[in-house]
Amino acid sequence: MIKVKKLFKTYKQGVDIVVAVNNACLNIKKGEFVAIVGPSGSGKSTLLHLLAGLDKADSGEIIINNTDITKLNNEEMIIFRRENIGFIFQFYNLLPMLSVKENILLPALLSGKKTNAYEKIINDLNIKDKENYLPNDLSGGQQQRTAIGRALINNPKIILADEPTGNLDSINAKNIMKLFKHYNNLGQTIIIVTHDLRLAKMATRIITVKDGKIVKDVKNVKAHN
């Protein structure tokens, strides 16, 4: 499903050049629930952004369902992401002038697709009673669930989540992870970035990143079971 070959990404930080992703190679199969862990500044979020096409790599390949996204231009990437990827940001990044319902439905409206999935998603997320509220009126957990709903509405093949529980309390964090587990059980490929090892253990595969390099890649047998 996802093949990453010799991926390289650098940033300029003042006069220094920081290597954020250093020669990463990865293979993720359909239906996997992958957690990318690592210390702060290790490059895990950068890797996720590159997988989502939100940033451009300096070199390397990212092949998703036989499409090398590094070769796509901006427009093609937007359309590809719209149809194949659902991205969840750490700080929710909902559109503040849209209600919960409108935020969730927006990707479907933009892609022009008719969807019946809204009711099921909003019930699964347990925010049906908040569907007409604006993001400023919601709690962190509710906003994050809205963001998850927005990522799911187009039934994407892959869900990428960057620190989805980073701003939540432990109970809400656990609930969010359970949601991911639920959707993974339904067949969705999920890749999350987290610094919380306890939550990472709910994934079926844990990839550890350090100084831009993948240093460990293990199957989490317990989670499988």
Partner: peptide
């Protein structure tokens, strides 16, 4: 800029 980035991330094309 942030709003535009968000909209692009969820599928708003250049024509849109």
């Amino acid at each position: 800029k942030k709003e535009f980035g968000l909209l692009k991330s969820i599928g708003l094309t250049t024509k849109d």
